[in-house]
Structures are given as structure tokens and as C-alpha cells.
């Protein structure tokens, strides 16, 4: 078992870890916050206040 074979296992392990971190955080966020708040972003809202497209 050389270094490359070990790296394969390390890579599997790290992938699992990053995947799990995302999924756990996603579930926690979704259960902590209200869905209406999470999806409250609107396009162009900043636009309307910060930049005026008027000459």
C-alpha cells in the first residue's frame, strides 16, 4: 500500500466530510429559519435604491 492508495482513501474521506458538512448545515438552516425569510431575496431591489438609470 503506497502513498497513492492511501491518498485514495483520504480523498473519499474528505469528500464525505465536505458533503456531510453541507447537508447538515442545509438541514439545520432549513429547520431553524422560516422558508419565507430564506426565499425573500428579490432581483433588482438594490438596483432600485442604489443606482438610478435616468439621465
Amino acid at each position: 500500500m503506497d502513498v497513492w492508495s492511501k491518498l485514495e482513501y483520504v480523498a473519499w474521506g474528505l469528500s464525505l466530510m465536505f458533503g456531510a458538512l453541507m447537508i447538515i448545515d442545509l438541514i439545520r438552516t432549513d429547520s431553524t429559519y422560516d422558508n419565507d425569510l430564506l426565499t425573500s431575496s428579490r432581483e433588482g431591489e438594490i438596483e432600485a435604491t442604489a443606482e438610478r438609470h435616468i439621465i
Binding site: 485514495e8 482513501y9 480523498a11 473519499w12 474528505l14 469528500s15 465536505f18 453541507m22
Partner: peptide
């Protein structure tokens, strides 16, 4: 494993 890892890490 390396293909999966690069996608997972960057995501």
C-alpha cells in the same frame, strides 16, 4: 475519489 473530492470541496 479525486473527481468527487474536487467537486465536493469547491461546492
Amino acid at each position: 475519489p479525486f473527481i468527487v473530492l474536487s467537486i465536493m470541496f469547491l461546492a
